[in-house]
Design a protein around this nucleic acid. Structure first.
Lengths: 112, 112
DNA sequence: GTATTATTCAACCAAAAGGTTGAATGAATG
DNA sequence: CATTCATTCAACCTTTTGGTTGAATAATAC
C-alpha cells in the first residue's frame, strides 16, 4: 500500500478525521483523546493505530501514558495530489466545456 | 456517509486514482477507460460507480455507450479540508514544537 | 432478424474494516 | 505487595470492499 493509499484510507473515516482535528490543539493521551467518542477505548486505540500506520499521528511514551501528536506531513502529500486537479475545478473546466480546449496538454497519467 | 467520507474513500484506491488521472484528458467510454487496467471490465465498472457515488465522475449516455468525465468538485472539498492543516506542515509545527505556541487558537473541532 | 458490442446486474468469494468483549502487560499508588 | 490505571493484544462478529464469473439488457451492425 502506497503512502497516498494509506493517507486517503485513514482519512476516509470521520472518527479518524475528528481525531486529527482534535490533535491540532496539542498532544493528548489515548484516554483523553478517546473521551468524547461514543465508542470503546479499544476502538479509538485501533483508529489511532491506523493513523500511525499512515504517518498521520506520532506517539511518545511516558511511563504508562502514550502521548499522541499530529504529524501533518501526509496531509501535505494529499494536498499536493489534489492540487494537481485544481485547474479542473477552477474555471468551468469541471463542467461540460472540459474538452473544448483539452486533448493536448497534460501528457502524464498522474501519480502512481 | 458524508461527502468527504465518500471522496476520501473513493480516492483511497490506487485504481480509482488512476481512473481520475485518466479522465483529465477528456471523456472516455467505460471500455476505453478500462483498457489499460489488469482487471475485468466489470471491476472497472464497479470502481466507476464508486467514483460516481462520490461525485467524482459524471456520466453521459449516448446509445449503448456511456461517456465518463471528471467532476472535480469533491476534490476541491478534499483540498479545502487538508488546507486547514497547512500550518501544521509548514514551519516546524509538525515536529515537536507544535504546542509551544498552541493551546489558544483554533477552537473548533474541524469539519464533521 | 440474428449477431455482436457496450454495459450493467447478480451471485459469489476472500480479505479487510470497524466494532465489541475479555485478558494481558506494565506503570503508578495505597 | 496488592490495586488501580493506561494501554494494548487477541479473538470474535458483522459489514464492506475489491475482485471474479455468468447472465441480462439494450443498442448497433450485418
Amino acid at each position: 500500500m502506497s503512502n497516498l493509499d494509506l493517507a486517503f484510507a485513514a482519512l476516509a473515516d470521520p472518527t479518524r478525521r475528528r481525531i486529527v482535528a482534535r490533535l491540532t490543539r496539542g498532544e493528548l493521551r489515548v484516554t483523553d483523546l478517546a473521551q468524547p467518542f461514543a465508542m470503546s477505548l479499544n476502538a479509538v486505540s485501533k483508529h489511532v493505530k491506523v493513523l500511525e500506520g499512515a504517518g498521520l499521528v506520532g506517539r511518545r511514551r511516558e511511563g504508562r501514558e502514550h502521548y499522541l501528536r499530529l504529524r501533518a506531513a501526509p496531509l501535505r502529500e494529499v494536498a499536493r495530489w489534489t492540487a494537481q486537479y485544481e485547474r479542473f475545478w477552477t474555471r468551468r473546466l469541471d463542467a461540460l466545456g472540459a474538452f473544448l480546449d483539452g486533448q493536448k496538454e497534460n501528457g502524464d497519467e498522474g501519480s502512481q
